[in-house]
């Protein structure tokens, strides 16, 4: 996958995070490798549920359990890698 396409997916994921969680930040300010939960964006478990619903509805990607979620939600880069893997582009 080209760098441009990959960055495009990163941007889509950031836009999804900001829109679904109603964050009042510019999606471009989210760092690709920063943690989404805890000290990163400071998201919580309810936000995780919202992202799981959003990924399923908008990307057709399901996160079946917390273990998978822990890995996928590590950062934007990790989430993009997970989406690519499930969609067969990884």
């Amino acid at each position: 996958m080209s760098e441009t396409l990959e960055q495009g997916l990163n941007d889509k994921v950031k836009e999804l995070i900001v829109r679904r969680l109603k964050l009042t930040i510019d999606p471009n300010t989210i760092k690709d490798d920063a943690p989404l939960f805890g000290e990163g964006l400071g998201l919580d478990s309810i936000d995780a549920l919202e992202l799981v619903v959003g990924l399923e509805q908008e990307f057709g990607v399901s996160i079946p359990d917390e273990d998978v979620g822990r890995e996928a939600f590590a950062s934007v880069n990790a989430l993009v890698a997970y989406v690519r893997k499930i969609k067969g582009n990884g």
Binding site: A48, L49, V53, D65, E66, G69
Partner: peptide
């Protein structure tokens, strides 16, 4: 039920 994640249910 729309979605389940861990102990959370939407």
């Amino acid at each position: 039920l729309i979605q389940k994640f861990g102990n959370l249910f939407r």
